[in-house]
Amino acid sequence: MPHAPSGLVPRALAALATVLAVAVIAAPPAAAHAALVGSTPAEGDTVSTLESVELEFNEQLLDIGNEVALEAPDGTRTPLEVDGEVTSTLTAIVPDGAAGAGTNLLHFRVVSADGHPIEGTVTFTYAPPSPSPTPSASESPDASEEPTPSASPSEVATPTPSATPSPSATAGAAEEGQGASLLPWLVGGAVAAAAVTAIALAARRGADPNGPAGQH
């Protein structure tokens, strides 16, 4: 049986190695998925205000199928609306009352450029500022309790005494009134007395024959 030339095997192995190397070099790199590289709030942050959240990835995202939700400490989960154009950064609006004081979870599901969905969670603490205390009714100043400025001595009006009629004047006025009321009676009595006197005189003259009326 004939033997292969001694130099043929090494050449064949060298050619095979070259083909494998070319195949490895020419092979396309494995597709890489998007990865989260930053966020606002960041992992472990403590914030006092929260109007929006931002997620930053290492490559462009597809503007389809992206979801963001905020989970409050009590377990309430609120979907967030994506705001603006989706690039390698995704921004979402946080509605009032969605976050609660304490540890909150920001859940996201985005689609990388190769169509592969990526999911993750960012944990942060929300510490809203304490509301300023409102004074109670007992502490608030009452307008009714404000001191009323007292009038100065010069401003105090001195009461003017009213004129009081003296007893003599009162008695005189009473007597004048009584006199005025009795005057008609006195006049009438005088007239009646004069009439009676005249009648009596006339009667006497008629009864006396020697009187002036009886003389011829």
Rank of each mutant, 00 (worst) to 15 (best):
P159W: 08
L36W: 05
G100M: 01
L16G: 12
T123D: 03
E51F: 12
V191T: 15
A194K: 05
P117I: 03
P131A: 07
A171F: 14
A200Y: 08
L50C: 02
I118A: 05
V37S: 10
N210Y: 14
E71F: 02
L16Y: 13
H107K: 05
Q60N: 14
A26R: 15
V111M: 06
R11T: 08
S112D: 09
L61D: 02
V53C: 03
G7C: 08
S154I: 09
P184N: 08
N104F: 01
E43N: 13
A157T: 15
S48Y: 07
S154Q: 12
V187G: 07
V191P: 01
S166G: 14
P147K: 06
D114A: 11
V22P: 02
G102F: 04
E67M: 03
D142S: 13
S140I: 05
T91W: 00
E155P: 03
V187P: 01
P135R: 06
D45A: 12
L8C: 06
V196H: 09
E175T: 08
S6F: 12
P28D: 15
F124H: 00
T164A: 12
V191D: 05
S130M: 04
E56W: 00
V24T: 15
P129F: 05
L50V: 04
A17I: 07
S140E: 08
T160E: 14
A202D: 09
P161V: 08
E43I: 03
G177H: 14
F108C: 02
A113I: 06
A200M: 07
P141R: 14
P129A: 06
P165Y: 11
T46L: 00
S112F: 04
P209Q: 06
T164V: 15
T164F: 11
G84I: 01
G206I: 05
H107V: 02
A202I: 09
S166V: 05
L16W: 15
L70P: 00
